[in-house]
Amino acid sequence: MSTTAEQATFDTLEADEVLLEARGVTMRFGGLVAVDGVDLTVRAGEIVGLIGPNGAGKTTFFNCLTGLYKPTSGVVSFAGRPLRPRPRAVVRAGMARTFQNIRLFQNMTALENVMVGRYCRTSAGPLTSIVRGPKFRREEAETRARAQELLEFVGMPDVADTLARNLPYGDQRRLEVARALATDPQLLLLDEPTAGMNPQETRQAEVLIQRIRQTGLAVVVIEHDMRFIFNLCDRVLCLVRGSVLVEGTPEEVQSDPRVIEAYIGTSADEPDETGSTPEDGAPRA
């Protein structure tokens, strides 16, 4: 599923070469410290899980990585080069994301949605677009073919002409993945890809992410579904109140008493001062 150009990039990358390196990423909103000095290293081909109770700052951290927020302090670098906190620069560097609440272009067809993802990898300008020059036609055909290919890759070859808003929920999530893949990323950030899915759809999502990894991409995934996380991830970070509580293999994190405490709440002698209810963020193991 990779283009030749992308393949070339991968050939130059060592298997355990560092793709994404975030050092001391901090995001303050006024007095609130949403993300507090988080370090994250992702190597090529790795699947990293990001867990933590609601409000722990996982999505904010994603927004810092992808340039939607400009971090208050900290450095994010990608494939050895520092990243400017601009969404476009991030996408061009090779990092794409999906959203926690699906943000498809609802009134565009599935194919058009994916084609928008190709925007940053194409360059037909106004002039060639207006006169329908050879460059425009070549690029347009390529874009279309690639978008269809990606729809097939995520397992929905027949929905090209269906409006995004008419797709069932699970398909909308998959379409978002296809759209992100269209930007030719080396690293995919998935924000709760199975939220609201039934067990069968969750299983399909798992298979899809495995297949994405097989094509050589690294994946960082925010999830609450523990089984999903432990089936997939090479490494798991648990984020609590903006900072990394535990980092390790799924087994280590799963058995760590601090993680359980952060999710389920504290024992009786140490009352939970935030008073948060664990229902929403509780692990669905």
Partner: peptide
């Protein structure tokens, strides 16, 4: 011709969801 091109798709995407369009590059 602009409407039926990469640029036109970009415009539609911006109209639909500016943040998402930005995040898609």
């Amino acid at each position: 011709n602009l409407n039926r091109s990469r640029i036109g798709r970009g415009w539609v995407a911006i109209r639909e969801d500016e943040k998402a369009a930005e995040a898609m590059g």
